[in-house]
Design a protein around this nucleic acid. Structure first.
Length: 311
DNA sequence: AAGAACTCCTGTTGGC
DNA sequence: TGCCAACAGGAGTTCT
């Protein structure tokens, strides 16, 4: 439970963040080098389901196939494979990939996969690639999943069809937010978590973006739009902060990858420091504010914010 | 129709 | 010290 961790523990280990857009993008970059152009030499599926059942003939449909590209949409990883199918992968809450390179840190028989004490019992899928790399998908909570769909059906697949704009693309503008939030009675927090409005934001980065923008998570989403649906100053303020907080996090994840010389390629969890998330009871970091970070529940989830400078 | 509540899961944490 | 309930949350599903 991140929020209740002691300051000392946070100081020592940093916060472990759930996979939101920046984490998924970092995982994508980490996997790209070992997946793209390689073939699945062996695919091991160790249980019938994760969050959803694995696709029919999952192993057979991948084995021997070459991966052409590894993309990302919202929090989904999209591996296009030879033969016209796309492997859709979602990390859920606790999903991670561990990369082992041939001759460097290849797994020996009976060896524990993780240095963190895990005994490998949550290692659900293993990809042995033609380049010698072994990629293991580990997911304790099994909120993640893998699906296979035809290339041509990806765009209309029900998981993809309704997804909103990519926040780092040109689609996220104050005008877009205004249009989608006009008249919306739900609070700002819920609206920004809604994947149909903006893709890839999760609990943490919504809290952080609202903090940076000085907007209260309790305000109605309709604050972003005028009566005629034009962007308000609040929307103008929020959009650049959403982009900035995500870019900062991707940059931090990038440093994690660059600094990664250790034998364990554990992709999926990165240590960040946040301005509000997990900081209940601590002083607001905004110069001159002096407020105290509060935690409230919105939609059953924790929201962290400063009641003094977020209005 | 929009929005809230419920559901899946397991490791970690805090209270007693 | 051990036991157990509460909690973390993405997102599909079900409810109001």
């Amino acid at each position: 439970m991140v929020a209740a961790r002691s300051d000392a523990a946070i100081e020592k280990d940093g916060l472990r963040t759930m996979p939101e857009l920046p984490e998924v993008e970092t995982v994508r970059r980490g996997l790209e080098g070992v997946l793209v152009d390689a073939r699945f030499e062996r695919v091991e599926q160790r249980r019938p389901d994760l969050r959803f059942p694995f696709p029919d003939r999952f192993v057979e449909r991948l084995t021997g196939k070459q991966i052409t590209t590894l993309g990302r949409r919202a929090k989904y990883l999209l591996a296009h494979v030879e033969g016209g199918e796309v492997l859709i992968m979602h990390l859920g809450m606790s999903g991670r990939f561990v990369i082992r390179h041939a001759g460097v840190n290849a797994q020996k028989p009976g060896e524990f996969l993780h240095e963190n004490g895990s005994d490998g019992r949550h290692d659900h899928v293993v990809f042995a690639m033609s380049n010698g790399a072994t990629i293991t998908y580990n997911d304790a909570r099994r909120f993640g999943f893998m699906l296979l769909v035809k290339d041509a059906e990806l765009a209309t697949h029900k998981l993809m069809a309704g997804i909103g704009v990519e926040p780092l693309g040109e689609g996220l503008t104050p005008g877009h937010l205004a249009e989608r939030c006009k008249g919306k009675q739900a609070n700002l927090k819920s609206a920004l978590l809604d994947q149909r409005i903006v893709a890839g934001l999760g609990n943490i980065y919504v809290c952080e973006a609202l903090y940076r923008a000085g907007l209260s998570p309790r305000r109605k989403a309709s604050v972003l739009a005028t009566r005629t649906g034009k962007a308000t100053s609040q929307a103008e303020r929020l959009v650049p902060e959403i982009k900035a907080v995500l870019e900062d996090a991707i940059e931090a994840g990038g440093s994690t990858l660059r600094d990664y010389h250790a034998p364990q390629g554990d992709l999926g969890y990165f240590q960040h420091s946040f301005a509000v998330y997990g900081r209940e009871g601590l002083e607001c970091a905004r110069p001159g504010c002096g407020g105290t970070i509060r935690r409230i529940k919105q939609g059953g989830r924790s929201t962290f914010f400063c009641p003094l400078c977020q209005r």
